[in-house]
């Protein structure tokens, strides 16, 4: 555990909680892509199946349970409790265009051809692109609530911090996992455009709105 890894995890946790609180407090999931949230629930489910097979640490186990639990709670709020506020007309990204190629890739490029390992690989690849329905929705509506941008910022920064964690681990522990690194780079790149808008607009007190 190093400082980048820990702050990355905390940033990830902050993102998840910001989103849950935003929906809960406003009693609305307007502007949130339910499809991205379903993909994240799928990511956590397929990645953390090792909860059933191995114990790494109390930290590891509790964070996994919190991530999975919050992911399903978010999906429940969007598709059940506050379904009336869900903006399905703007959430039109075709997720099969992500899930099918990512599934195929997980079968072809993995560390070990075993069910758990393929599912873990699938989750890594899927996470890297799972935010696309959300970014697509924002590009369609041309705007995002400020609280939603805070969520996206924390979620994007988390994987960027993991990149520094992997550099650290490579130098000090000789550890590297090419699948996670490549997917992590892709994931971070997808946020770059958003980071630019966040820094130049939201941090200066303006609402995030895209030119028509």
């Amino acid at each position: 555990m190093n400082v980048f890894r820990l702050t990355g995890d905390l940033s990830h946790l902050a993102a998840i909680i910001i989103l849950l609180l935003k929906i809960w407090k406003s009693r609305s999931c307007a502007g949130i892509s339910g499809k991205s949230q379903i993909l994240f629930a799928l990511v956590f489910t397929t990645r953390y199946l090792d909860l059933l097979t191995s114990f790494i640490s109390l930290y590891n186990t509790s964070m996994k349970i919190i991530y999975v639990g919050c992911a399903y709670a978010t999906v429940y709020l969007i598709y059940a409790k506050f379904r009336a506020t869900y903006d399905g007309n703007h959430d039109t990204f075709r997720v099969e265009f992500l899930v099918v190629p990512v599934g195929g890739l997980a079968f072809l490029v993995n560390h070990d051809f075993s069910p758990l390992e393929i599912l873990w690989t699938f989750s890594i690849y899927l996470e890297s692109v799972a935010i696309l329905p959300q970014l697509f929705m924002i590009s369609k509506t041309g705007e995002a609530e400020t609280i939603t941008t805070h969520y996206l910022f924390c979620l994007g920064v988390y994987r960027a911090l993991y990149l520094f964690n992997w550099i650290w681990r490579f130098y000090f522990e000789g550890f590297f996992d090419m699948i996670a690194i490549v997917a992590g780079v892709v994931q971070t790149i997808l946020y770059c455009d958003f980071f630019y808008l966040y820094i130049t607009k939201v941090l200066k007190g303006k609402k995030l709105s895209l030119p028509a």
Partner: peptide, 10 residues
């Protein structure tokens, strides 16, 4: 043989 990476990360 098992060449999987330990999954200590989240």
């Amino acid at each position: 043989e098992d060449d999987t990476v330990p999954k200590d990360e989240l």
